[in-house]
Design a binder for these strands. Structure first.
Length: 678
DNA sequence: GAGCACTGC
């Protein structure tokens, strides 16, 4: 019964950019058209906005018309875990199942949570997980249809998945691939699947390959307004716009897009200051921050209805563009910028840059005002600036460290990754750098072949290559239990310590309590051990020690999963292997063995502290700042290795540091330090 | 003395 509501065709003209004017299908025909194309062609591209119901309806259409009848499964991939679980629940409900029956005919599978059974016929999952499934089932034979949802976001995993599905189609012409996309990138997707040397896929010519179906979304008209003159200070303009909306527009909450935490706090302070200017008015404003770094408790506020006579102003990063949906938004203010991660292959440094948004992004942001009723969007740039914006955001694959992806592809039998059929080929510098990294770690040999067992084992582990190498070396340093813990804690990425009620001093104090002189890795190990010895579920103890309970629980899951992976590789947690320097290692204490082991994976991330407390790279060409979360923010050190490096605005930060001896660098990575020089 | 957009295995 929800079916009809969901694909109801809206009459409004709305954003011309969103929809192809001709060919919009009425509800009754969508089902027929979809089933016809799926029956006839290997590939179907669905163009339709979020809220069109495509994600929930299409798998049901396929299920009811027999695509799951022979025991095969319809899979729907999502870029985010939250989407996979919530859509699965919704579909199960629409099909008449009770919540407790989720995991039977309809289920989902995400990391750490497999809610499926032998009966499951419709399965929602993250795209990254489906990629992992290909290790055991390279042709994905259990699936009759694979629908890649939100493909327009161009996430690393979904891009790779599309390339691999194209390969699979050559061997399994009976497989059906449905690519769903919110924007007008549809033709690019279809052309991609159709292209190869002879224009044939699965024995079909281009015209026989697939079709594009466009469906109308269930959104309301959004009136878009531009600035007449560009602004030099969009935070100030945004705050003024908030005030203007508040004094002149009807009821309805405001969603303001800015680029980061600092701007968000700045804007909230300004708004708070100016509320007073209104005096005791009957309508007031409630500014609320929203960014991923907030703990879930604080994020929760944005979903709660505002008190009477109060207008919520949610000041958010890009998280509200696709990942988080808030009801009741009638006004969107779009600053026109977003922080994007970029990878510099020559220095091996990740950067966070403020970039203009794409037209697709701006459209998506504006659409957030029209989810439940007609709305307005105020773009803090001119109409001609909008016209100059890129159509779509640069795909992640063209601006990331590709070492993990390349390793995974090689393990799937892709021997020549340079000639791999990428949807958008990454710059060759990125590929070369990734190969260099993998070679220096010993994951590939001089002929660019995956090594055995090291390379294949590294690829099996759900860890970045440097950490995977470190973990696999741990038995040689008789520190596998400790390294399992450290690797698990590293995946939490700075979320371990939290300040409750904004009490920074208490947080710093807690950090000192757990600090280990040799560095952050052993400090995190110490935190985990304390957590376990306090009974593993003492949320109160976490609070008292400024620790993030949920993060530590996650570390336990990750640790268990890693331990299982190693066991499958024949490496028990208690394993110790004798390497060439076994006798020497036996005389060392645990901390030294851990530090040496870390060096075998992170030698390329070496740095030396200068007298002013900043660090420098071995070549001395980049100044590195200790991230304030590190224990070396206060303390002296000489040589260290670090886990992560990231450049923001004007400084390059390193985080998670551990002291090493300079000799270890040449001992464990002789060729790397010989060729690179010092 | 001072901080990182967002995902995922």
């Amino acid at each position: 019964m929800a079916e009809k509501d969901d694909i109801e065709v809206s009459e409004a003209g709305l954003f011309p950019a969103l929809y192809k004017p001709p060919g919009l299908l009425p509800i009754a025909q969508l089902k027929d058209a979809l089933l016809y194309t799926a029956e006839t062609y290997p590939v179907t591209i669905i163009v339709g906005e979020t809220g069109s119901g495509k994600t929930t309806q299409i798998p049901q259409f396929l299920h009811k018309s027999g695509w799951t009848s022979d025991g095969s499964v319809v899979a729907v991939t999502q870029p985010r875990r939250i989407a996979a679980t919530s859509v699965a629940a919704r579909v199960a409900e629409e099909m008449g199942f009770f919540p407790g029956q989720l995991g039977q005919e309809v289920g989902y599978s995400i990391r750490f949570e497999d809610v499926t059974s032998a009966k499951t016929q419709i399965k929602f999952m993250t795209d990254g997980l489906l990629l992992r499934e290909m290790l055991v089932d390279p042709l994905l034979k259990r699936y009759s249809v694979i629908m890649v949802d939100e493909a327009h976001e161009r996430s690393l995993s979904s891009d790779i998945l599309l390339s691999l599905l194209k390969k699979i189609l050559r061997k399994r012409p009976e497989l059906r691939v449905i690519v769903s996309s919110a924007t007008i990138e549809a033709q690019k997707f279809l052309d991609f699947f159709a292209s190869d040397e002879d224009g044939k896929v699965g024995g079909k010519t281009k015209n026989e390959l697939g079709r594009i179906i466009t469906i109308q979304g269930r959104v309301h008209p959004v009136d878009i307004q531009y600035l007449v003159e560009p602004t030099a200070d969009y935070v100030e303009t945004a705050v003024q716009t908030v005030m203007d909306i508040h004094s002149t527009e009807d009821k309805g909450d405001i969603l303001l897009f800015l680029t980061g935490r600092e701007e968000i706090n700045d804007a909230i302070d300004k708004i708070t200051d100016r509320i007073v200017d209104f005096g005791p008015s009957s309508q007031t404003l409630q500014p609320l921050p929203l960014y991923a770094g907030l703990d879930t408790e604080q994020q929760q506020f944005v979903f709660e209805p505002a008190p009477e006579n109060t207008r919520k102003v949610i000041v958010s990063t890009n998280i509200a563009e696709a990942s988080v949906t808030i009801d009741g938004i009638a006004y969107v203010i779009d600053c026109g910028f977003v922080k994007l991660r970029n990878y510099d292959p020559s220095l091996g440094i990740e950067r966070l840059n403020v970039c203009p948004v794409s037209k697709a992004s701006a459209t998506q942001r504006a659409g957030r005002a029209g989810r439940t009723r007609p709305g307005k969007c105020f773009r803090l740039y001119t109409e001609s600036a909008f016209a100059d914006l890129p159509e779509t955001t640069f795909p992640e694959i063209q601006r990331s460290d590709l070492a993990p992806v390349i390793l995974q592809l090689m393990n799937l039998g892709i021997t020549n990754v340079v000639r791999f059929d990428f949807l958008s080929p990454p710059p060759s510098k990125l590929l070369i750098r990734a190969m260099d990294t993998l070679h220096s770690l010993g994951a590939i040999d001089e002929y660019a072949r995956l090594t055995r067992p090291l390379g294949t084992r590294m690829a099996e582990l759900p860890l970045e290559p440097m950490l995977a190498k470190t973990l696999l070396n741990a038995p040689y340093f008789a520190c596998l239990p400790e390294m399992l813990t450290i690797a698990s804690m590293m995946t939490l990425q700075g979320t371990v310590f939290v300040s409750h009620d904004g009490n920074k001093k208490q947080e710093d104090k807690a950090k000192r309590r757990f600090a280990v002189a040799e560095g952050d890795h052993m400090t995190l190990y110490n935190v985990y051990e304390s957590f376990i010895s306090h009974g593993k579920k003492d949320a109160q103890w976490c609070r008292e020690n400024s620790l993030n309970f949920k993060a530590l629980v996650k570390a336990m899951s990750v640790r268990k999963q890693l331990r299982n992976h190693l066991e499958r590789l024949g490496i028990a947690e208690t394993a110790t292997f004798d390497g060439p320097d076994a006798a020497k290692l036996r005389g060392m204490n645990l901390v030294e063995r851990v530090r040496r082991c870390l060096t075998t994976g992170f030698f390329a991330h070496a740095a030396r502290m200068k007298s002013d407390g900043t660090f420098t790279t071995p070549k001395g060409d980049v100044t590195l700042w200790v991230h304030p979360s590190s224990i070396f923010f206060h303390r002296k050190a000489d040589w260290v290795i670090y886990h992560e490096i990231m450049e923001t605005r004007d400084k390059t930060y390193i985080r998670d540091l551990t002291t090493v001896e300079i000799d270890w660098l040449t001992e464990y990575a002789p060729s790397y330090y010989r060729t690179k020089g010092k």
